[in-house]
């Protein structure tokens, strides 16, 4: 195992994050504050509670998940796309490092950034609403598993993308709608039966449900199913990256 290669990639990616730490943190924190103001205070003022939880607190896991998914995908996709764009990818591909080591460096850094931002948002939420975390261990576990899984997805997008437009299109057109329709701001049980059924086809629903369970001990789907869904997503991502490195698709001639 080339641990030094993993560390080299991870360190460079984290250094980029810390170089622009204020932009990296300010944007998601500001967005979250706006969500709290709009959904928590303005709209939430008219919704007393959801399944016994104050609406402002109810949306906290969904808001964190929204940011984690967006940050994981964008950080990982940019992380691998940028070397492709400027041509420095040659060095990564010619290094004595396996696909797993390269992925561990990029995905590890992207997931770390997403988790750090998520924790900052969690702390920010304490200023607006009272949040109690029922299962702290599982909260962290869901957070890390989701960050890693979606960083893998971002890594795949970064390899697939041929230009910056393609780099943006999946997060904008797929991830954000899935999060909004996955119960970030409501419980699936609030939907009419038909749409509740449709919502269950959305993989993000399982992530948000599991994460919300770790906060409030209530979920749209059993927590075991949520864990299984995250694990499945993680394995699918790993398999796809392995296949890409094996075939060299969009990486090697």
């Amino acid at each position: 195992m080339n641990w030094l290669a993993i560390r080299a990639i991870y360190s460079v990616e984290m250094a980029r994050f810390f170089r622009t730490i204020w932009q990296s943190l300010a944007s998601p924190v500001l967005s979250t504050v706006l969500y709290f103001v709009v959904f928590g205070a303005a709209i939430g003022g008219r919704i007393q509670s959801v399944e016994g939880i104050a609406y402002g607190a109810f949306i906290v896991p969904g808001l964190i998940m929204l940011t984690v998914l967006q940050q994981s995908v964008s950080n990982a996709s940019f992380g691998i796309y940028f070397p492709k764009f400027i041509g420095t990818i040659y060095e990564i591909l010619s290094a004595p490092a396996s696909f797993l080591e390269i992925v561990a460096g990029y995905v590890g850094a992207a997931a770390t950034k997403a988790v750090l931002i998520a924790l900052v948002i969690l702390v920010t939420s304490f200023f607006f609403v009272g949040v109690h975390i029922a299962h702290p261990f599982w909260m962290v576990a869901f957070l890390i598993l989701t960050a890693v899984s979606f960083s893998l997805l971002g890594f795949l997008i970064g390899i697939w993308a041929k230009n910056f437009e393609q780099l943006q299109i999946i997060p904008l057109m797929v991830i954000t709608p899935l999060v909004f329709l996955g119960g970030a701001f409501y419980s699936a049980s609030m939907l009419p039966p038909f749409w509740a059924g449709v919502a269950r086809l959305n993989p993000v629903l399982y992530l948000i449900s599991g994460f919300r369970w770790s906060f409030f001990d209530l979920a749209d789907v059993p927590v075991g199913v949520s864990l299984f869904a995250v694990a499945l997503f993680l394995l699918a991502g790993l398999f796809a990256v392995w296949a890409i490195f094996r075939t060299g698709w969009r990486l090697r001639g």
Binding site: L4, A5, R7, A8, E91, P96
Partner: peptide, 10 residues
């Protein structure tokens, strides 16, 4: 330093 680490050298 990055290049050196990438190639597995301390």
């Amino acid at each position: 330093r990055f290049s050196r680490g990438l190639f597995g050298k301390p």
